[in-house]
């Protein structure tokens, strides 16, 4: 069978589908001071998984606000700098109007994912951290 660390090199998704891969990628991103990219990506996935229903409405609103505040509101943050202004406006308006949709972070997540696929992920595959691990 293919060792996990070789599968990590196939695609960003195969890396993010493996706990050890995530941990190593996070260590790398921390060194580069951009582990928020990864946390944001997973926060968006987790948010989408929360089914809207009467019992968790308050939680979903609180969580949407927390994600917005931590990653998007600060325009100097690594995540905020990589998200298009229109996407940020859409999220801000959704939070302010309390229109909390499971897909409200999808576009922002895609933008961060594209950035990782084009930038941090290929750099990770050439990094000492990854090469030493293999």
């Amino acid at each position: 069978p293919t060792p996990p660390y070789l599968r990590w090199a196939e695609s960003l998704h195969s890396l993010l589908d493996d706990q050890d891969g995530i941990n190593l990628f996070r260590t790398f991103l921390k060194q580069e001071d951009c582990s928020d990219l990864l946390d944001f990506w997973f926060a968006c996935s987790g948010f989408r998984k929360l089914e809207p229903n009467d019992s968790n409405e308050e939680k979903r609103l609180k969580l949407a606000k927390a994600i917005f505040k931590k990653y998007i509101l600060d325009s100097n943050g690594i995540v905020s700098r990589q998200i298009k202004p229109a996407t940020k406006t859409f999220i801000r308006d959704s939070v302010m109007r309390q229109q909390i949709d499971p897909a409200m972070f999808d576009q922002a997540q895609m933008e961060i994912q594209s950035m990782m696929e084009e930038n941090t992920y290929p750099v990770f595959l050439k990094s000492d951290i990854y090469l030493e691990y293999t």
Binding site: F42, A43, G46, L63, A66, K70
Partner: peptide, 20 residues
Amino acid sequence: IDSEDDLLQECISSAMPKKK
């Protein structure tokens, strides 16, 4: 009541793959 950080952390963990 969860603090915002706890809520975020829980959300991030919920999206992670489970250990195989």
